[in-house]
């Protein structure tokens, strides 16, 4: 039994002709303290898996379990205390009319934490922002600073599991490095369990011990970090991804020219 067990998960949106099978039977489990990656292109269903886990997407089939307890229907307050999510777009996931202080205080109020003052200050400190940012609005922050606030908001409840949906894809490379280092550091310090969704193989290779490659709502294959380092992939699609992430090769153009 792992920290998170997902068995044969399927998610379907819409009805009739507009029916979309976003996830078609995915199974994996993540151990406590492990960092697990999900890689895939847009529309592969990778984000939907995370959303189904936190109850933001309808589960049509299969079971989800946290620490052995099966998750059914509306998630309890206790669940969100243990599992928190960081979304992709820091421009869309922070309320434009709430200060950093209210963004961070609200979850504390909901879950009845004491010493809110001190916790907000510590959370800001943990993500490298400091107290000077406490009463700013999102529009007064850069993209990287916003994502740090989003991470602080997730961490302030002292969760055990952090679900990261493309946490750095909206950021510049230099800022991405800082945010990835931050995530790496808090995981070591607090023994957190991560599920990180990304389209960037290099980010996942850096952050995760194991990963799953998804395509069209299905799992293509599961790899370890060592496999990725050695570029050992059995499935054709994974090989294509590996090749594409190396960048452009002159032979790409030549091969196409010869074929057409």
């Amino acid at each position: 039994m792992g920290m998170i067990d997902i068995t044969d998960l399927a998610v379907t949106f819409g009805h009739g002709a507009a029916r979309v099978q976003a996830v078609r039977g995915i199974s994996f489990s993540v151990q406590r303290g492990e960092s697990y990656g999900i890689v895939g292109e847009s529309g592969s269903g990778k984000s939907t898996v995370l959303r189904a886990l936190v109850g933001l997407a309808p589960v049509t089939k299969g079971t989800l379990a946290l620490d052995g307890d099966t998750l059914i229907g509306r998630r309890s307050k206790a669940f969100y205390r243990r599992v928190q999510m960081v979304f992709q777009d820091p421009y869309a996931s922070l309320h434009p009319r709430q200060t950093v202080d209210s963004v961070l205080s609200e979850p504390l109020a909901i879950h009845g934490f004491d010493d809110r003052e001190g916790r907000v200050a510590r959370a800001l400190d943990d993500v490298g922002l400091g107290l000077g940012f406490r009463f700013r609005y999102p529009h007064q922050l850069s993209g990287g600073q916003r994502q740090r606030v989003a991470i602080a908001r997730a961490l302030i409840l002292e969760p055990e599991v952090l679900l990261l949906d493309e946490p750095t894809s909206a950021l510049d490379a230099s800022i991405q490095a800082e945010v990835l280092n931050l995530l790496d550091r808090v995981r070591t310090e607090r023994g957190l369990t991560y599920i990180l969704v990304s389209h960037d193989l290099a980010v996942v290779a850096h952050m995760c011990e194991r990963l799953m490659v998804m395509q069209h709502g299905r799992a293509v294959e599961e790899l370890s970090r060592a496999d990725l380092h050695a570029r050992v992939a059995t499935h054709e699609y994974t090989r294509t991804l590996l090749l594409a992430s190396e960048g452009y090769r002159v032979s790409d153009g030549a091969a196409q020219g010869a074929a057409s």
Binding site: A173, A177, L180, D200, A202, A205, H206
Partner: peptide, 8 residues
């Protein structure tokens, strides 16, 4: 500062 697939 770019992460690498080969590990870094």
């Amino acid at each position: 500062c770019l992460p690498k697939i080969e590990g870094g």
